[in-house]
Design a protein around this nucleic acid. Structure first.
Lengths: 198, 198
DNA sequence: GTCTATATTGGGATAGAC
DNA sequence: GTCTATCCCAATATAGAC
């Protein structure tokens, strides 16, 4: 098994510092709006190191950044859904978590996967695929949680589509409006929708 | 009253050709991924004409592109909601319209407002504000339609948040997954959610 | 209003010493 | 693995003739 990743940037290895910096910058500025030179500078690495670890250049780095965002949100999903076995309570808590992250960053930090993949559909298949895998993984985490809470498997699979889509859309709407209202409504309405399948 | 805009690019004036081309390109490539030279070339205008009509440069043009996307989706919303007075039927129809647009463009044309605004939050306040106004307008169109269908005004205002957020998120999820499934589920679940407030 | 030419900056990417 | 220097090109924006 590989060495576990340290959680703070200071003690992380070069490769990991680069990926985390790329993910954070692309989350705020998008893929096209983020330069490799800026990433290397803010990660405290040289341009040579970036191309050493990512010979595929910016696209390979973007795909790695999306995969990191995938892992992070997967973890948040699992934690929140495990902490509260009733989805009717876990879903509003999840929406509140997202709202907190947005507000604490002054509405700058939305979904890192969405920010990175939007606008790259045409010319970066690796990034598009990494994002598709992220969405699919999140859905399966939600679906498993619903099944564990006693929902029928087909209902759970179906609902997982809308849970992820609604959270994504509400996070975007909250960011644009600079208001927690869309995420608050989303959490409440998702709980109500799920409850209607009991 | 001003002259009505022609609906095909060929007979449109220069300024309008530029805005429409910018909107279409930014929808596919994002704001940062789209160059002014590409816009001028594909619009059949010279660079000088672009800066003549948009002295504020790319940011002013981006804001105009977002406003055009706002108008277009507002129109689709009004048409669909007026054609079917029952929201339980209109909402799935709306989702199906979005899915059709995505599939017909080979999953390239998502929401032009979202594509353009994502990744510009930090440094382009005009674009961010135009997007905020678009989301607010769409919400109010949905809320008015729900009130007309007999829903209580507070419920309608509240639901309008989730209707827009879910459609946006599902359109994004469908685009990334290259599948109509997220939008199909969204339309069905929104109808069910709205029905629960009857 | 339209066009061409150009100034200037920064982008991604590479080479090769260490 | 790290670092510096550099190539090449595209980006936004401007100037000024017509």
């Amino acid at each position: 098994m590989k060495t576990k990743a340290p959680h703070d940037l200071a003690t992380a290895g070069t490769r990991e510092r680069i990926v985390r910096t790329a993910s954070r910058l692309m989350q705020r500025q998008g893929y096209e709006g983020t330069g490799i030179k800026q990433i290397s500078r803010e990660a405290g690495a040289t341009l040579g190191s970036v191309y050493h670890f990512f010979p595929g250049g910016k696209q390979e780095l973007g795909a790695a950044a999306v995969r990191l965002g995938d892992e992070e949100f997967t973890e948040l999903l699992r934690e929140t859904l495990d902490a509260e076995p009733e989805p009717e309570k876990a879903l509003p808590a999840l929406a509140a978590s997202l709202a907190e992250g947005l507000r604490d960053s002054d509405w700058l930090d939305g979904c890192p996967v969405t920010s990175t993949v939007v606008g790259t559909a045409s010319g970066a298949p690796g990034i598009q695929q990494a994002a598709a895998e992220a969405f699919a993984r999140w859905r399966s985490v939600v679906a498993e949680s619903l099944v564990a809470a006693g929902f029928a498997a087909p209902d759970a699979a179906d609902l997982s589509h809308t849970v992820i889509a609604t959270l994504e859309g509400a996070e975007l709407a909250s960011q644009v409006a600079r208001s927690e209202a869309p995420l608050e409504a989303a959490g409440r309405h998702l709980a109500r929708l799920v409850a209607s399948y009991r």
